[in-house]
């Protein structure tokens, strides 16, 4: 069980604490139970020990339209290992008894609907989950979902894209809890070699609109320490790294120990970059 009082919000607290030290929040994503529950648990622990500030756990869906090939393949591996939302939430429960970092889930709407929205949220909350990202549930359709999440002390984290209108962005800023998930490019998840100027401009634009009401975390396409420092310099409060980490898992399926070493090293160097924001 997470050690947090009802009045406090562990995710926003994390951003506040690190913000005071001018340090960015590093959100590390892995697909739950990829490639199997035991390896996933060990991989997640490596990320936490290596310096991840928030852990984001994917719950696989057969048709992940927002994801590129790397996370699609991870979802397929997890599903082949018969991963279910309930089992992944159980594993998260194990992590949250050992570690205090905030944990968020990312899954599409249908697996949540199939489990029952309230039952999913209750189980998630009992397992120590602090927030949820549902990429195919737009804010406009999420009124009841958000109210129920509030009841279960779960932050509803909404996505914004480079083409999100100012009006809608304002709405997302007002209604997001925990952090705002800024998709900083046009496209699906997956590492890019170069961070586009568009990504940096998007961060600047959204930061201005957010006026400190909600922390901004930039995700999609981020794989290198220099991406992290550039985005933080542009004004992001945090960065989300997913495919670049999942790729490490995929490249070491035969040797899980090796995967854990690499994950720890990668997250450590990304974390170092988040400490030198230069502002």
């Amino acid at each position: 069980m997470q050690d947090n009082s009802l009045t406090d919000n562990p995710i926003e607290q994390k951003f506040r604490d690190l913000g005071k030290r001018s340090e960015g929040v590093l959100v590390a994503y892995l697909m739950g139970h990829d490639p199997d529950p035991k390896s996933f648990l060990a991989n997640a622990i490596s990320l936490i020990e290596g310096g991840a500030d928030i852990l984001e756990v994917g719950i696989p869906f057969s048709d992940p339209v927002a994801d590129g090939p790397i996370i699609q393949a991870a979802g397929m591996r997890a599903l082949s290992a018969r991963a279910t939302p309930r089992q992944i939430l159980d594993t998260i429960g194990e992590l949250s008894t050992q570690f205090t970092l905030p944990i968020v889930t990312l899954t599409y709407y249908n697996p949540i609907l199939a489990m029952g929205i309230e039952r999913f949220m209750r189980t998630a909350s009992d397992s120590g989950v602090n927030g949820m990202v549902v990429p195919d549930l737009p804010m406009e359709e999420a009124e009841a979902f958000r109210d129920m999440a509030l009841k279960h002390n779960l932050d509803s984290i909404y996505l914004a894209a480079p083409n999100t209108s100012t009006e809608r962005l304002q709405n997302i800023v007002n209604k997001s809890k925990g952090f705002l998930y800024l998709v900083s490019l046009y496209g699906v998840t997956g590492p890019r070699d170069i961070l586009s100027t568009q990504s940096l401009d998007t961060v600047k634009k959204v930061k201005l609109l957010a006026r400190g009401k909600i922390p901004i975390s930039a995700g999609f396409g981020i794989s290198r320490p220099e991406h992290v420092s550039s985005l933080l310099r542009a004004g992001a409060d945090g960065v989300i790294v997913g495919s670049a980490l999942v790729r490490v898992v995929a490249e070491h399926l035969d040797d899980p120990g090796e995967a854990q070493d690499h994950l720890k090293k990668n997250i450590w160097s990304l974390k170092q970059a988040s400490k030198t924001t230069g502002c």
Binding site: P60, F61, S62, D63, V65, L79, T84, P85, Y108, Y109, N110, P111, I112, L113, A114, M115, D136
Partner: peptide, 20 residues
């Protein structure tokens, strides 16, 4: 059974866990 796929809520062939 009722579900959500491709941005619509409708009848969907899915397993107990909501996988299509």
């Amino acid at each position: 059974r009722e579900g959500v796929l491709h941005g619509m809520m409708t009848y969907v062939l899915q397993n107990a866990e909501g996988q299509i």
